[in-house]
């Protein structure tokens, strides 16, 4: 039997093959919309949404399915962007290798941070990840190659694989969309694999998973490392797009923002982080004229979402559809 639950980890009832088809269609429609989107919307805005959405997806893999709230994910996102930026600007590496080295860096950082943090739970886990992220922030602030407050600027946009010219914003968009879809499918497969099932079981009742014979620490560590690597992929892609790696990407505010996006979109839903990222980025971009007030608007949105729509946008819609059925 094919596993068919698509939308929620938290409680979708009976699903048959029909359900599988309807969600496949939904995904194909979304993909089609994504393909024509640059005709309507500003490509660089879309690219920004995609990068941040991938970051939120990576974060959601850890909290939504592993139940681990990391408050230091900016270290992977920002860390990878520095490494990629440096590799491309100073070492002159091609785009694809630059991104790869960023991902490798964040994955390795994920192993180290994971080994330290994974033994604690709940608020202690969050605090350990925050502390580690602050250390990483400090290191990047002090290291000469990161350019301190200036960051790494003017990272070149080299043709991908030597022939896909990403100086053109529309081409760039399709390249980033490809990376995003790859990341999305990777996460989708992970969640729906036996590994993902065990992860959900651990989130729900770790004792029980242990007494069934699972070494739960190992599963949580792997989830942490995968999440770190994918967050790095998002950060590395972002530096290619914006040609700059800055301290903003490694600050704790960045770690907080990804929590916000995931909660607004729907924790533990497959598509929630994407919607959450789109909402938050849209607010930041289109309400930019309000200046600092954007933060207040974001705060109010967050409070309303958490108090009235705890499942987030996608979670609430999925719950509504289930009720109607």
């Amino acid at each position: 039997m094919k596993r068919t639950d698509i939308n929620t980890a938290g409680g979708s009832p009976a699903q048959g093959p029909g359900r599988f088809n309807s969600s496949t269609i939904l995904y194909l429609v979304l993909l089609a919309l994504a393909l024509v989107a640059p005709a309507v919307l500003y490509p660089i805005f879309l690219v920004k949404v995609l990068c941040v959405a991938l970051f939120a997806l990576a974060f959601n893999l850890l909290i939504g399915y592993g139940g681990l709230l990391s408050f230091g994910h900016a270290m992977f996102f920002g860390g990878a962007s520095y490494i990629t930026g440096h590799a491309m600007l100073v070492w002159g590496w091609p785009t694809e290798l630059g991104i790869l080295v960023g991902v490798v860096f964040s994955t390795l950082l994920g192993v180290v941070a994971g080994l330290i943090a994974i033994r604690r739970q709940g608020i202690y886990f969050a605090m350990v990840t925050l502390a580690l992220a602050q250390m990483v922030y400090f290191i990047f602030l002090q290291m000469p190659f990161t350019g301190g407050e200036d960051g790494i600027q003017n990272v070149p946009r080299r043709a991908v694989f030597g022939f896909i010219d990403i100086a053109n914003d529309t081409t760039l968009y399709y390249v980033v969309l490809t990376i995003f879809v790859f990341g999305f499918l990777f996460i989708y497969r992970t969640i729906h694999s036996p590994f993902g099932q065990v992860l959900k079981a651990i989130r729900e009742n770790e004792d029980r998973a242990t007494s069934l014979g699972y070494h739960t620490t190992r599963f949580k560590l792997l989830a942490f490392v995968l999440s770190a690597g994918l967050a790095g992929l998002a950060g590395a892609t972002k530096v290619v797009v914006f040609q700059i790696a800055t301290l903003t990407d490694v600050t704790w505010q960045m770690s907080g923002e990804v929590v916000l996006m995931t909660l607004v979109g729907g924790l533990g839903t497959v598509f929630g982080p994407v919607v959450g990222a789109a909402i938050i980025i849209t607010m930041q971009d289109y309400l930019a004229t309000f200046g600092e007030w954007v933060l207040v608007i974001q705060g109010v949105t967050f409070v309303i979402m958490v108090s009235l729509f705890r499942r987030g946008v996608v979670g609430e819609i999925a719950a509504l559809i289930n009720r109607v059925r």
């Binding site: 596993r3 938290g10 036996p194 989130r203 014979g213």
Partner: peptide, 17 residues
């Protein structure tokens, strides 16, 4: 009983190694 509520019956059944 420790049934995992986010998994369905089949998935619960197939979860233990």
């Amino acid at each position: 009983r420790g049934i995992f509520s986010s998994l369905n019956v089949q998935e619960n059944l197939e979860l233990p190694p």
